[in-house]
């Protein structure tokens, strides 16, 4: 058991290091010199020596230096604003964490609703099972715009600007949650179907258990592990989805920061965001692997 966990942790570290290195190499190869573009402006009147000094300030001093910096929580300086990348991340992270957490919870709720709903009803089943394919085909940015149109402009339920914290959060959370709920719902529905074909189900039914009792007490527990895996896999999509969601709703956060970084060719910021996303993804999946033996004692032996 400990060996299994150590091996998984080692693999996670390796993937993380490789993701960092790949992103580092890619962003180093960037054509065009964003520092030169920004500071060469004759109006600034900077001498070549001064530009060289500025470059020294930004240049983290090679790969090894950057790796050590990241390990110490020093991500270098943003080319765009000149402030430390850590500061810019710290500014956006709480907002994005709030948005992503709410969206993840809502996505799981939606998935459970769809999957268990389809297991209950015969007539609605086909309709409910078609919902995930629709959810996954909807562009998130368009969904956000549609929600603003309906709830802010037509029904006037949510103000476009201002409003309470909850009002500001509702539509973005929905926008982010809908596409993410689809794969979770699909896997959950499929594993519920699979578990329902197992021999213990008629046995429990023969003992007089109701459909709900069977579903919630017996099937849910057995259908959980595959669902957990896919929930871990879609976690990375939360960060990608926040780029679109935060842009559409004009919220501050890591997603908005990413969009600004791409526009300004701000490589240090993008590197930090990619590493952050990969870290979150790897950690969550490690957590899933750790939880697996707890949920399914057969794996622990």
């Amino acid at each position: 058991m400990t060996k299994y966990l150590l091996k998984r942790a080692g693999q996670a570290l390796l993937v993380l290091w490789a993701a960092f290195t790949a992103a580092y190499i890619l962003l180093q190869a960037m054509p065009g010199d964003s520092i030169l573009i920004k500071f060469q402006d004759p109006e600034l009147g900077l001498s070549p020596e001064q530009i060289a000094k500025i470059r020294e300030y930004y240049d983290a001093g090679g790969y090894l230096h950057t790796v050590l910096g990241f390990l110490h929580g020093d991500f270098g300086y943003s080319v765009d604003t000149g402030t430390p990348v850590v500061e810019r991340l710290a500014e956006g992270l709480p907002e994005t964490a709030k948005l992503a957490t709410c969206a993840f919870v809502l996505a799981v709720l939606l998935a459970v609703l769809i999957a268990f709903g389809s297991a209950y009803s015969g007539r609605l089943r086909g309709l409910l099972l078609a919902v995930p394919s629709l959810f996954i085909s909807v562009p998130a940015f368009w969904l956000g715009i549609l929600l603003i149109q309906v709830f802010s402009f037509r029904l006037r339920l949510v103000p476009v600007i201002g409003g309470t914290e909850l009002q500001q959060l509702v539509l973005p959370v929905l926008t982010l949650a809908v596409p993410i709920s689809a794969p979770i719902a699909q896997v959950l529905a499929r594993s519920i179907d699979q578990v329902l074909t197992q021999p213990f189900v008629p046995v429990v039914a023969a003992k007089g258990a109701s459909r709900s009792w069977i579903l919630w007490r017996h099937v849910a527990r057995n259908a959980l592990p595959p669902t957990l895996t896919v929930a871990g896999l879609v976690f990375g999509e939360l960060i990608a989805g926040s780029v679109v969601t935060e842009t559409v709703f004009g919220r501050t956060g890591v997603g908005r920061l990413t969009e600004q970084a791409v526009n300004a060719q701000d490589a240090p910021v993008l590197l930090a965001v990619v590493v952050l996303a990969a870290t979150a993804f790897v950690l969550v999946n490690l957590l899933v692997d750790v939880l697996f033996p707890v949920l399914d004692p057969r794996l622990a032996t």
């Binding site: 993937v15 993380l16 490789a18 993701a19 790949a22 992103a23 890619l26 962003l27 190869a29 960037m30 054509p31 990375g236 999509e237 960060i239 990608a240 989805g241 780029v243 679109v244 990413t258 970084a261 791409v262 060719q265 490589a267 993008l270 965001v273 990619v274 996303a277 990969a278 993804f281 790897v282």
Partner: peptide, 18 residues
Amino acid sequence: DVLLSVPGLLLALTVIIL
């Protein structure tokens, strides 16, 4: 595995910045 650990949109944005 490494490619899969970075969300698609972030990967695309990295290529676009490049």
